[in-house]
Amino acid sequence: MNYTESVERRALRAAVADLGARYGQRYFLDKARTGGKTTELWAEAGKLGYLGVAVPEEFGGGGGGIGDLAAVCEELAATGCPLLLMVVSPAICATVIARFGTDEQKQRWLPGFAEGTTTMAFAITEPDAGSNAHELATSVRRDGTDWVLNGGKYYISGVDEADAVLVVARHVDENGQRLLPSLMIVPTDAPGFTFQPIEMDIVSPEKQFTCFFDDVRLPSDALVGAPDAGLAQIFAGLNPERIMAASFSTGMARFALDKATAYARTRSVWGTPIGAHQGIAHPLAQCAMQLELARLMTQKAAALYDAGQDKAAGEAANIAKYAAAEACAATVDQAIQVHGGNGIASEYGLGALLTASRVSRIAPVSREMILNFVAQHTLKLPRSY
């Protein structure tokens, strides 16, 4: 196993970092606080091919893997521009369609993913089921050649920016029996589909929504893959989601650590930089080590996924997501502490990261569910939930 990235991956990181630096956190926060969107950054990243690095070449993408896309996500976050929709649209939705979509679906959607002109949200979470696909109430049934979708989802990211939503729904047969989950592509302008924002105490241009599906009629080609293979298809998208979430977190942590170390080098008290004191230096060194370990685990997870080792990748992706979230929360907290009162001043841009870093321990899967997964599948302990 290589512990260093390829020359091409490092060049990709450098190019994306240059792009992110031209926009920076001030751009990101201004958009978030004024109700705007990061449209210009997203469009330029798409035009340069960064959003489509993992889309197959035959559809206009870079032909790379999830590791390449995760590198893009991390580098943008490290410049103060963490784009949440990168975790969803090109990672989950494009991956699922590339692996399981029909030829027509691939031709319809993948070129747009490749150039960043298509955005798709992903909807699995429900109030009474969380992300437990076995307990989902949203249903889809056949009506002639069409599909009819009913139910609701919540905490769905970026619906207002999306062209469509990839919805997880339980298939209902002609006898009313609920079968395995199915994946449906639902245009955001489909009759019967409505959504409303959820007020959140997080500074981000990308919003969360509750979605409602009331007899939403969809054509036969809205189904992705087989109606009884939804679980396998879901996890083909959720493992990349965890890898991308880990990179999202490590990017934010890098941004916070850079801020903290720069401040510790230049802020002097009684003629000495505060970074010269072990009470400041040692906690920052611990954050740096925790962050680097999380990045290494994320790279391992991506390498396993790109190598087609789905089972091993699932375990690694969960561990990476856990490690990255813990590193991010700890690093942002320490960076604020190093700055003292300045840590929550808007000028320094750290207070805005506090809620976002805390969310990383909750979504897209909670730290407790990852601990359950590792206990059960890695340690072979009895299931606890």
Rank of each mutant, 00 (worst) to 15 (best):
T250M: 06
I243G: 01
L296F: 08
F248N: 10
A294P: 02
E241T: 11
S249P: 07
T250F: 08
S247G: 09
A232D: 15
L223Y: 00
T261H: 06
P219V: 10
L223T: 02
Q233R: 04
H282S: 13
A246T: 09
A229N: 12
R265C: 09
T298N: 11
L284Y: 04
F248H: 15
G251L: 05
T272G: 03
A226E: 12
A262C: 12
Q309T: 07
Q233N: 09
T250G: 06
S247Q: 07
A262K: 11
G308E: 08
F248W: 13
A229Q: 15
A236H: 07
R265P: 02
Q299G: 08
N239S: 13
A303G: 14
D228Q: 12
L293I: 14
T298A: 10
D306H: 06
R267Y: 13
G251W: 01
L257W: 03
Y263G: 02
D258T: 12
A232W: 04
H282G: 12
G237D: 03
I234G: 01
A294C: 08
G251Q: 05
A302T: 04
R295D: 08
L257E: 04
A222Q: 03
N239R: 15
F255W: 11
A307H: 06
A281M: 10
L293R: 15
D310F: 12
D221C: 08
A253F: 04
A236Y: 06
G230W: 00
G251I: 05
G271N: 09
G279P: 00
L296K: 10
L291G: 00
S268G: 02
A226Q: 10
L293P: 00
R267F: 12
A246Y: 04
R295H: 08
S268M: 15
V269T: 13
A294I: 02
A246N: 04
S220K: 11
Q299N: 14
L293Y: 09
G237M: 06
L238G: 00
L296Q: 14
D306R: 05
A232P: 01
T298Q: 12
G271W: 07
Q290S: 14
A264F: 06
K311R: 12
Q286E: 15
L231Y: 13
A222M: 07
L304H: 00
